[in-house]
């Protein structure tokens, strides 16, 4: 395959960036999108140019590191991560635009790499349970109803890649935050911190400068793990419940 790539190049956080056009040849349709970028970088290094910086780690769709916007879609045209997107979904001769996640809370570090530590701070505000560590407890000691376990697991699938924020016209982190809150709030292990978790995590989400939700639905369409849009309604319900409860006590 012969392709024309238009890639966002930005030397560092403070420098202005621009789209730079590269021609690339000999791309196999079995390559992943990241392998195609590796091929481009090998050519750039041989020519003595600066390679394109992009985040990647596991390359098997479970770590959430490899987020880029491809032709306006977070992670590209397929509902998966960039590392699991294969070049067979493109045609010979295509022009492909590659851009970093765009959000005020995700500043560009270099080229396609953004700083997603705002997500870590949301998790730090309550995305955990307080429990003594040590040997794993007996699995049947705390019964969990099957529908609750399914609901928790559906949300535990979130890999924190940030595609929801990148796709949202408001740069909102509601889908990410809802996945983390719903995952823990439905389980008995998460019950002691049920109210403080949702109030603190939503407050941190607001402080980090993410936008509000206008129910555009772009986040759920972009999510490689299929976190559904009603998760946001479930979080809103938890937040309203916690607000009522905390104001009473």
């Amino acid at each position: 395959m012969r392709l024309t790539l238009r890639v966002w190049r930005q030397p560092d956080a403070d420098a202005p960036g621009a789209m730079v056009t590269y021609g690339i040849d000999g791309i196999s349709e079995d390559m992943s999108f990241l392998e195609m970028l590796d091929t481009l970088n090998e050519e750039l290094i041989l020519k003595g140019d600066e390679p394109v910086a992009f985040d990647h780690d596991c390359r098997e769709g479970i770590c959430g590191a490899c987020g880029v916007v491809i032709n306006g879609d977070a992670h590209g045209p397929e509902r998966t991560t960039t590392c699991q997107l294969h070049m067979r979904h493109f045609n010979d001769g295509d022009t492909i635009d590659v851009e970093p996640w765009r959000a005020g809370a995700f500043p560009v570090v270099k080229d396609l790499v953004v700083d997603r530590s705002a997500f870590d701070r949301i998790i730090g505000a309550g995305g955990y349970i307080t429990a003594p560590t040590g040997a794993a407890p007996e699995a049947h000691a705390t019964p969990v109803p099957k529908p609750d376990a399914d609901f928790a697991f559906e949300h535990a699938e979130c890999i924190g890649c940030g595609a929801c924020v990148a796709a949202c016209p408001n740069g909102s982190a509601m889908l990410f935050t809802s996945a983390k809150i719903n995952h823990l709030n439905v389980l008995p292990q998460g019950a002691p911190e049920r109210e403080t978790r949702v109030l603190d995590m939503v407050a941190t989400m607001d402080e980090e400068g993410f936008g509000g939700c206008t129910l555009a639905g772009e986040c759920a369409t972009a999510c490689p793990k299929g976190i559904p849009l009603p998760s946001i309604a479930a979080m809103n319900k938890e937040w309203l419940r916690a607000t009522r409860k905390v104001s009473r006590s």
């Binding site: 238009r6 966002w8 789209m19 916007v69 032709n71 306006g72 879609d73 635009d97 851009e99 765009r102 959000a103 005020g104 809370a105 796709a167 949202c168 016209p169 408001n170 740069g171 909102s172 400068g209 993410f210 936008g211 509000g212 206008t214 129910l215 555009a216 639905g217 772009e218």
Partner: peptide, 27 residues
């Protein structure tokens, strides 16, 4: 909220496409 939403997406994508439905975009 609109002021906040616009500030949360300071730089636009170069590759433009319509985001969300017509009713949502015209709110």
């Amino acid at each position: 909220l609109s002021r906040r939403d616009l500030a949360a997406r300071p730089s636009k994508y170069v590759h433009k496409r319509a985001r969300a439905g017509y009713a949502t975009r015209t709110m």
